[in-house]
Nucleic acid binder design. Structure first.
Lengths: 229, 229
DNA sequence: ATCGCGAGTTGTGTATACACTGAGGATGTC
DNA sequence: GACATCCTCAGTGTATACACAACTCGCGAT
């Protein structure tokens, strides 16, 4: 793998996971020495992060990790609604019905009471997203969705999932998938709308609950003392 | 201005205008010598074009200008419908009504029978787009719209505008703007839908007329199996 | 004649040196 | 003591050299 790819993936994960919180200065020399690559591939990696909107040039000399607060999450879900609503309709109108039928079954059959259930949940979501992209079969839409998902990963980190929400989300996805499998455009779009509404409310509630917690995401979980699993 | 910016803007314009048609190989050394910059800023420029989707790595050694045919235009307008439909609704719900009232008047008052009318038309469109972005006030949506418009410039180049279409488009925009000014979400969205439908039909007709290709009754997308990325 | 192998060529990936610019501090002057 | 100016330094922008991989072309062997 190319050095620029490694640098990009590393920084991407660190920004999404909160290791590099908003406002962190991303300096070429500093990051290139830290990650063991030279400045040239590091420049390319930072350029891709700028294109993604994860970092931005605050001034001509300083590049920082972009902010990501409740307002950004609201905007993000507004964009998600536009894109995923259309994607759901398009998938329902021309997607592989068998594939979404299987996905609906997988969502229905999934249980969240075992170890590593959260990872299984996100793996299923990833399968669903991939099926949606394949069904939509529109590079402009899927490219826009890809960018949205890149930012969504940051939101997921901020909102610690609770089991009830995951269960509800699984049911919502089962409905979306079955609507697509049935070719029901309206239901697919409206179920997507409902899902995004619920997900947004859940995230914002989770954010509110943790306001005033430690700014370090790694420690905030213990600070609030909530049982999650 | 930085050398990488100059290189990017030059290549962008050349791709949008068709000077560099789809399939053209973009080699670093060739372009850097041609544009009088070194390879480093040229790499950055090409990287930005890749992020835009205007060029793509066909193989590990060769980067080419991406294809842009009737199917791509259909996909592009599908994405436009998702994004601009939502944008119109959001603008109608929270945009600056006075600004869109003025835009509606400007569209209504515009005449297309003088020299340079096409430029005036596109200037008005640009004003409308800027007002829409300001009204939507959502960086994720406006960023996606910006990408779409970058590709739209290629479609405009392919479809030579005729005066009737421009006049109709102006009327359609007047309706969209007044619907937004009136806060009529549904009308704004539906008028946008109508406009995009008419624009797409016009472009595809224009393409058929200039290439002599037969209209595609079905979906030929699946036949062209090669993925782009 | 064809197939295979190897050297040369070409083009990208990476490292690094140089250039330029802006910021901050220190020093000199008023 | 305060302000202005200059110097230094840090950091990015750019150029270029080196590394490496792939494709090509030619030569030789079968």
């Amino acid at each position: 793998m190319r050095a620029s790819d490694r640098a990009y993936r590393t920084l991407l994960i660190e920004i999404q996971s909160g290791v590099l919180p908003p406002g962190t200065v991303i300096a070429e020399v500093e990051q290139s020495t830290r990650l063991g690559v030279s400045r040239t591939p590091m420049r390319e990696a930072i350029g891709r992060l700028v294109a993604d909107g994860l970092v931005a040039q605050q001034s001509p000399r300083v590049t920082v990790v972009t902010d990501f607060n409740a307002d950004d999450i609201r905007d993000l879900f507004e964009a998600r609604r536009a894109l995923e609503g259309s994607a759901a309709k398009l998938a329902a109108s021309r997607g592989d019905r068998a594939a979404f039928g299987e996905l609906a079954e997988a969502f229905t059959a999934s249980h969240l009471d075992h170890e590593g259930a959260v990872d299984d949940y996100y793996a299923l979501i990833a399968r669903f997203d991939a099926a949606l992209d394949a069904a939509v079969d529109n590079s402009y839409l899927t490219s826009a969705l890809r960018t949205i998902r890149t930012h969504l990963a940051r939101a997921r980190r901020l909102a610690r999932d609770n089991q009830e929400r995951l269960a509800a989300s699984t049911a919502e996805h089962a409905l979306i998938a079955s609507a697509i499998a049935d070719g029901d455009l309206e239901l697919a779009a409206h179920a997507t709308h409902v899902h995004l509404h619920n997900a947004l409310v859940s995230i914002l509630d989770s954010l509110e609950a943790s306001t005033g917690a430690s700014p370090r995401p790694g420690d905030s979980r213990r600070a609030t003392g909530e049982g999650e699993q």
